[in-house]
Structure formats: C-alpha cells, structure tokens
Amino acid sequence: MRRILAGMLAIIALSSHADEYRFEDYPATESSSRVVEQLRLPESESGSVFEMFLQRAVGSSPNFAGKYVLTYWGCGTSCQQVAAIDVDSGDVFYPGEGAASNGVCYQLDSALLIVNPIDKEGAEQIPDWFHTYFYEMTDQGFRLLGKTREGLSFDCGAP
C-alpha cells in the first residue's frame, strides 16, 4: 500500500511541473555575431519615445535567442517596456502588449522569454490581475506559449 501511495505522489509531483516552460526546451535555432546597426520600425513609431529607447541598443550584440537584442526600459511604476531587435534585419518585435510589471528572464541560447517571473513563495501574494507569461521567439515575432498565476519552481536568473 505504501508503494502505491508513494508512486501516486511521485506522479502528482511530476505532473505539477508538466506545464512549466524551461529555457532548455526552446533552444535558439540561429546565432549571429553581428551587432544592431539600424532599426526597422513601423512608421507609426518613427520619432516616438520608443524609438529613442530602442536606439540605445544600436551597437549591441545578441543577448537573446541567438540573434536578438532584448532590451527594456522603465515606463512608470512597476512597468517596463520590452522589445527584441533582430541584429540581422533591425526588425523590432514586442511580446504581447510589450510591457512587463515584474521584469523578464531570457538567455542567449534560448528562444524562451519569461515575462513577470515570480517564484512559488511570492506567488501567494500577487494581485488577481498578475500573470507570468511565456513566449517563444520566432522569425515572425513572439508566440505566446502560456501564462500562469503560479510561481516558477526554478530561479530563472532575471538579468
């Protein structure tokens, strides 16, 4: 009986992390040693505050998904604007609405972006509207993988 109970508990423990996204599960498919030389912004953003902040990334090497520069800047209390710039084309991509409330986690060798990371202990105290979002970087931009109100079971090492 104890073995059956132990086995059931192990299955439950493993399945509780089945929907969790990990950097190693989304390896970068390309890499580049180039730097951002120019920005290709939609006409509506030309001359905007966004352009001013994005220009700061010109000359930067990839730090995300092999060939992107992930950059972010403050946009008010508990607000960061997030963008990824393709170093080869200068195209700019935004995850979801482009804003975060609790920072981001990312890696050079992974296409996974975690927006609003929070650990399991802190998850009990978050407001109802708060979610951690998981995106995969593709050549067409960010693809939403999922979201959760539960905290992460690992330290994602927010830069």
Score class of each variant (00 low, 15 high):
110 S>Q: 04
60 S>R: 14
124 E>W: 04
19 D>Y: 15
90 G>M: 11
107 Q>V: 09
17 H>L: 14
38 Q>M: 12
127 P>S: 01
88 D>R: 15
131 H>Q: 05
76 G>D: 07
125 Q>A: 14
68 Y>A: 03
107 Q>G: 12
28 A>Q: 02
106 Y>K: 04
30 E>W: 01
43 E>S: 03
107 Q>K: 15
114 I>C: 05
111 A>H: 06
75 C>E: 09
92 V>G: 15
20 E>C: 01
23 F>H: 00
132 T>V: 04
78 S>M: 14
32 S>R: 06
116 N>L: 08
131 H>P: 05
58 V>Y: 05
75 C>V: 11
35 V>A: 10
40 R>F: 08
86 D>E: 06
62 P>G: 08
98 G>T: 07
71 T>V: 15
94 Y>M: 15
99 A>V: 15
99 A>C: 13
91 D>V: 00
25 D>R: 08
111 A>P: 05
121 E>V: 06
65 A>L: 04
109 D>M: 04
76 G>W: 08
92 V>A: 11
99 A>F: 15
90 G>A: 14
11 I>R: 03
40 R>K: 15
61 S>C: 01
93 F>M: 13
66 G>W: 07
38 Q>V: 07
116 N>T: 02
87 V>A: 09
26 Y>D: 04
110 S>H: 01
89 S>K: 14
99 A>Y: 13
125 Q>V: 00
73 W>R: 06
13 A>Y: 00
91 D>P: 04
129 W>K: 01
17 H>K: 13
131 H>W: 01
86 D>V: 06
71 T>S: 10
126 I>E: 03
104 V>L: 08
83 A>G: 07
56 R>E: 15
110 S>T: 03
69 V>Q: 13
129 W>S: 07
63 N>G: 04
84 A>M: 09
106 Y>H: 15
56 R>V: 08
69 V>H: 14
53 F>K: 09
82 V>L: 12
45 E>I: 00
29 T>Y: 01
45 E>Q: 10
95 P>R: 07
51 E>D: 04
18 A>L: 11
75 C>G: 10
123 A>E: 00
62 P>T: 03
77 T>C: 12
49 V>P: 00
79 C>D: 03
43 E>W: 00
71 T>W: 12
24 E>A: 13
86 D>M: 13
58 V>N: 10
14 L>T: 14
82 V>D: 02
39 L>W: 06
98 G>D: 13
37 E>S: 14
36 V>N: 05
25 D>L: 06
19 D>R: 12
70 L>K: 07
98 G>Q: 12
29 T>M: 07
73 W>S: 08
103 G>M: 12
87 V>E: 10
58 V>G: 09
125 Q>M: 05
35 V>Y: 11
32 S>M: 03
10 A>I: 14
105 C>P: 06
25 D>W: 06
25 D>I: 01
28 A>K: 04
55 Q>D: 13
17 H>Y: 12
8 M>F: 13
66 G>P: 03
31 S>M: 06
92 V>P: 10
60 S>H: 15
